[in-house]
Design a binder for these strands. Structure first.
Length: 449
RNA sequence: GGAGCCAUAGCCAAGUGGUAAGGCGUGGGACUGCAACUCCCUGAUCACCGGUUCAAAUCCGGUUGGCUCCUCCA
């Protein structure tokens, strides 16, 4: 039974989908004004694994992740670089999508953009006004936080306490300092006609509208970083309650931070490393291995030691799989029927137990490593082809969840297989010069021996 | 002022009531024509103090240290 830690209740809860056999999930995507940093990579990797695991369990998953392409930071960056906003956002949207894939994640099948959701957003704000949850002031529209009894439920905060620590700039147009902007009249940057002013929408509205637009109802899972819990997700919930009379999502999942020198890494602190920079030193699989080795709600610190360790870890698993696959291939046994014995079956049970425990990828990775070890042992024994086949299939299934891309291999050509046989014969005959020459030849073709 | 999180071997990291998984590194051994790969063995009483319990790293209270949120942020 899969259990999920729900940030809304701060408890592990059994996962029960709203619609049997289906999972609807939405993960907050990036604001595209710069290359993404390694902190952004965490939800990209983790929620990809979540999606994969639901698929593994047989669910039909509908996964949506937005692109925020309207924002003050975008306008500022466009001005600073003297480029058109649209050009800027399309550049970084493309870069984002490349990074997602470089990290071994699949792009969300649906990636709605704010610029393409404007009519729905305006209609939504109009409805909030009609229902008395929003008010217009000089072309701006604000959400009336105090009208909602449950405000603060997600972040476990009282409105009064929030006000005490509030660092929000005073805005005399607001009835309450915690009221947030739904629509903002603006003179700069991209803008749209609306009943209130020429302007653009506030940040918290887009996700609510996109979710409703795509799913037309409450969804199973809403994910994102811890920092989005307040105010972003709190405000999303508020709007959903006000407009749709539901809490937007049944389960709220928040990943912990990536830290650098034990401090939060963030765009505003300027201590961030971009995914692109790190990819020049470590491949996507290494980064992924590193991240998945820590439970997603724990903070994870960026360090060269940790990355090196992860690199070694994934390489060993990869080599084990490749060696086993090679043995099957050379024995023309790639399609042999698998024999899943008790030991192998236990690995599967352990893997699922780990993942069922709130997606404990750290333990799942340990199971994967144990599988690699067993695979190495089997590969070096005579025969065992049916067991190796079972193991290869199992590791491949694990990998479909974890996304380390360790198992994408092609069978050897008949010519290459002959070379392997010749080399083995030469070794038997102690003709090491010939054996080494063949090894050299194979390696030149990119085939490790 | 309010809301939370964290502290486990040199490093990374599981475990949340029954006397500490795993990885990296270190050291030792095995296999091997060479190299690589691989396999086996090797380490901690869980920040500190007090309490609850037959039993605590795990629960409660306190102390110390670190982090995050209440402005944008994954």
């Amino acid at each position: 039974m899969l259990t999920v830690y729900n940030s809304l209740t701060n408890m592990n809860e059994p996962f029960v989908p709203i619609q049997p056999g289906k999972v609807s999930m939405y993960v907050c995507g990036p604001t595209v004004y710069n290359y993404i940093h390694i902190g952004n990579a965490r939800p990209i990797i983790f929620f990809d694994v979540v999606r994969n695991y639901f698929t593994y369990l047989g669910y039909d998953v509908d996964y949506v992740s937005n692109i925020t392409d309207v924002d003050d930071k975008i306008i500022a960056a466009a001005l600073a670089q003297a480029v058109d906003e649209t050009e800027l956002t399309s550049t970084f949207t493309k870069a984002y999508q490349e990074d997602v894939q470089a990290l071994g994640s699949n792009l969300a099948p649906s990636m709605p953009k704010v610029t393409e959701t404007m009519p729905q957003i305006i209609r939504f704000i109009e409805e909030l006004i009609v229902k008395g949850f929003a008010y217009e002031q000089e072309g701006d529209v604000y959400f009336r936080v105090t009208k909602l009894v449950e405000y603060g439920a997600l972040s476990n905060q009282k409105i009064d306490d929030l006000l005490v620590g509030a660092r929000i700039e005073s805005n005399t147009n607001k009835e309450n300092q915690l009221d947030f902007t739904l629509w903002k009249a603006t003179t700069e940057g991209i803008k749209w006609e609306s009943p209130w002013s020429l302007g653009r929408p506030g940040w918290h509205t887009e996700c609510v509208v996109m979710i409703d637009d795509h799913f037309h109802r409450e969804i199973d899972i809403h994910g994102g970083g811890m920092d989005l819990k307040f105010p972003h997700h709190e405000n999303e919930i508020a709007q959903a309650h006000a407009c749709f009379s539901h809490g937007l999502a049944k389960y709220w999942m928040h990943n912990g931070f990536v830290q650098i020198d034990d401090q939060k890494m963030s765009k505003s602190l300027g201590n961030f490393k971009t995914v692109r920079d790190i990819l020049t030193q470590y491949d996507g699989t290494t980064i992924r291995t590193w991240m998945l080795s820590t439970h997603y709600r724990q903070p994870i610190n960026f360090s060269a030691d940790a990355l090196e360790s992860a690199k070694k870890f994934s390489e060993r698993i990869s080599l084990a799989y490749q060696g086993a696959y090679r043995k099957l291939d050379l024995a023309d046994a790639l399609t042999i029927a698998p024999n899943m014995d008790e030991k192998i079956a236990k690995l599967q049970t352990d893997f699922e137990a780990a993942m069922n425990d709130d997606f404990n990828t750290a333990n799942a990775m340990t199971v994967l490593f144990e599988a690699a070890k067993l695979l190495n042992q089997l590969t070096r024994q005579a025969g065992k082809l049916a067991e190796i086949q079972a193991m290869c299939q199992l590791v491949s299934r694990f990998d479909q969840v974890l996304g380390l891309k360790l198992t994408h291999l092609q069978p050897l050509s008949p010519e290459v297989k002959v070379l392997f046989q010749e080399r083995e014969a030469a070794r038997q005959a102690k003709d090491f010069a010939k054996a080494d020459a063949i090894r050299e030849q194979l390696q030149q073709q990119g085939i490790e021996v």
